[in-house]
Structures are given as C-alpha cells and as structure tokens.
C-alpha cells in the first residue's frame, strides 16, 4: 500500500521532470543514501540514477561544495553547519511543496537550524544522540550516571571518541554545564584530565568500537545511538545509556546546493529518503532516528529507535547541538590536543 503510494507520488513528480537524470549525492559513506536496494527502488520508480561521493569531515564537505559548484545535487549537512553553508551561498532554499512526505516531518525539527527565516535549507532527515554504551557483561545494573567513566572500578576499561568537540561537550555534561555555552572551560579541562588515566584507548570509527567491545577490552565507552542499535543487532552485549546528566543530540538534514541543475530529481530523492517505507527498511539494518514522525511511528515496537529514543523522558534530557564557530572549535581542539600530548 505505502509502496503503491510512494510509486504513484514519485511518478507524478517525474512526469513533470522531463527525462531521467543522474543525481550526485555527497554524504558520509554507508549513511543511508547509498543503500543498494534503496537506490535501485528509486531508479525503478523515477528513472533517476544516483551516484555517490563521500566526505570524511564536515570541513571537507564544505570545501567540496565550495570548489565544485554544480557537481552535487543532494548533500547531507549537520544542522550545526547548515547556517554556515547558507551564509556562504552554497545551498539554496528547498521547495517542499512537491514532497509527499514533508507534511509529517515532526514540528520540532522545523524549528531547528535547518529552517532559516521560514525557508527550508535542509529537510530534517535523521537525528540521534551522542551518549555512551556499556558492556552488559561488566555491569549488574546498567549505570544511570556519566560518573561511571570516573569510577576506579573501571579504570583502563573506558574509551571515548578522539574528537575535540565531542570530548569537550562530554566534559561539559559531566560538570553540569550547558553544552552550547560552556562557561567554565577550566573545569571541563580539569574533569577531563582526571578521566585520562581511566582511558584504555580512543576510538575513531564504529568498526573500531565494535572490535574493542568484541575483544572485551572495554566496559563503557561513548557512542552514538544509531551505532549502538547496529552493534546490538550484531550480537554484542551492549546497552545504550542516556544518563541523568543528559546527552548531546544532533540533527542531520538533506540540502540541495544552490548550483544544482537537477533540483527536481534532487527533491524527489529527498522525498524518498524521508519516506516511511524507506526508513522501516533502513531501520532493519540499523538506522539513526527519523525526523519524520510518520516514519518513526511505522517502526515495530521492539525497534531500538522506538524503544529508547521514543521515550519522552529521554527526549526531555537531551540538548540539541548548536552551531559552533571556528574560534571556539579551535579553542576546544587546543584543549584536547594539550590533554592528549601530556599522556
């Protein structure tokens, strides 16, 4: 039924867009848009083919947009960077009137950084949490406080991601500060300095994380909600925790570069990306939470995204990440590098 609806709505769209286009998508590798079955279903329904290009950091994504005008039609931009991309004229306002699924996007996400002065510069796509996960074999009861990282009982069995912004915001949560406006950076640094001897290693990718957990090297490590769902699916004994101190939430949007010449095909692709049918399929392979309320509702009740992130108590504890300017970013990087250098 939904499939039929989707196909007909896409057919209606593609009837107006004359011919089959090849659209180029710029995204992280393995992040939803490049799922083989999804791209094939899209090509079948609209005739448009999808080609991918990947970035490994937000700075690289911005640079690619700056240096290759016209090369991309859809780009994934984290809400913390959408305003910067718009201010540089890299992305344009999106005409959402033709999107069949836009109407069910949760209102909260339309009040985010993705919508500027009433114009949609990024279609809210996915969101998730940066918090931590524990090895359930190492705990009798799952901890509810971030202080578990400082617990001497887990010395040498702790890991955090090697990323300055994430680390500093983690320190802000542990010292009871606002992640988007850290008043006492010295307190964060002191708290993190105490954390360092607890740490076994840093992780940098989901693959790293899974390997360390599978080898039994770690009891507790910072993690992303979507990744935790995937790791649990793989059979690792992990449980994602949103502690009482709170957690950092992020929102990813799909944007269309101002220089794109295939905007209609791009809109159709984004519409498919927020389609509940696509999302339910993606969730089976481990997806972040969807920003489309209808897609989130379509999940089975036992799915991680519905069970953990659908809990209103959890949602009340999270803080969405605000844009971070370059000067602050550099300050955090210097703090983090200094801490690491002194090991």
């Amino acid at each position: 039924m939904t499939r039929h609806l989707f196909l007909s709505s896409l057919l209606a769209l593609s009837a107006t867009g004359a011919l089959a286009d090849e659209i180029r998508v710029l995204n992280w590798q393995g992040y939803g848009t490049d799922l083989g079955w999804a791209v094939e279903a899209f090509a079948e329904a609209t005739g448009h083919s999808v080609v991918h290009e990947y970035f490994t950091s937000e700075q690289e994504m911005l640079t690619k947009l700056r240096t290759n005008p016209g090369a991309y039609d859809v780009v994934l931009i984290n809400a913390a960077f959408t305003r910067q991309a718009r201010d540089e004229g890299l992305i344009g306002a999106i005409d959402t009137s033709g999107m069949a699924n836009f109407g069910t996007v949760a209102d909260g996400f339309l009040e985010s950084e993705l919508v500027i002065d009433g114009a949609v510069f990024g279609v809210p796509w996915t969101w998730g949490l940066t918090s931590f996960a524990v090895n359930t074999a190492a705990f009798e009861t799952v901890p509810d406080s971030i202080e578990v990282f400082w617990d001497p009982a887990h010395k040498g069995r702790v890991s955090i991601r090697d990323d300055a912004l994430e680390v500093v915001q983690f320190g802000a949560l542990a010292t009871g500060q606002d992640i988007n406006d850290i008043a006492d950076l010295d307190a964060v640094e002191a708290k993190l300095a105490e954390l360092m001897p607890q740490i076994r290693t840093f992780w940098s990718s989901e693959n790293d994380w899974n390997q360390f957990m599978a080898a039994g090297e770690l009891d507790v490590a910072t993690y992303w909600s979507g990744s935790a769902a995937r790791s649990a699916d793989m059979g690792l004994p992990v449980e994602f925790v949103v502690p009482k101190e709170g957690a950092v939430a992020w929102l990813d949007g799909l944007s269309i570069p101002d220089s794109s010449t295939k905007k209609e095909a791009a809109v159709a692709f984004i519409d498919w990306m927020i389609d509940p049918e696509f999302y339910v399929g993606w969730d089976k392979e481990g997806a972040p939470a969807s920003a489309n309320a209808a897609a989130a509702d379509a999940l089975p009740d036992d799915s991680f995204n519905k069970r953990v992130l659908g809990d209103p108590d959890v949602v009340a504890r999270v803080t969405f990440q605000a844009p971070v300017d370059d000067a602050t970013r550099e300050k955090y990087l210097a703090l983090w590098q200094g801490l690491k250098a002194r090991q």
Binding site: T56, A164, M196, I199, R200, T201, Q337
Partner: peptide
C-alpha cells in the same frame, strides 16, 4: 598506542584529515 598514541605525526595527520 591507545591514549598514549598521540605524537607529532598524529597531530599533523589530524590537521589534514580531521579538522581540514
């Protein structure tokens, strides 16, 4: 190196790969 693995070379790599 784990948490001891930060050296001059890794910081240079970070400049090119992580923070651009």
């Amino acid at each position: 190196g784990g948490r001891f693995g930060t050296y001059y070379g890794t910081v240079i790599e970070d400049q090119f790969v992580a923070v651009f």
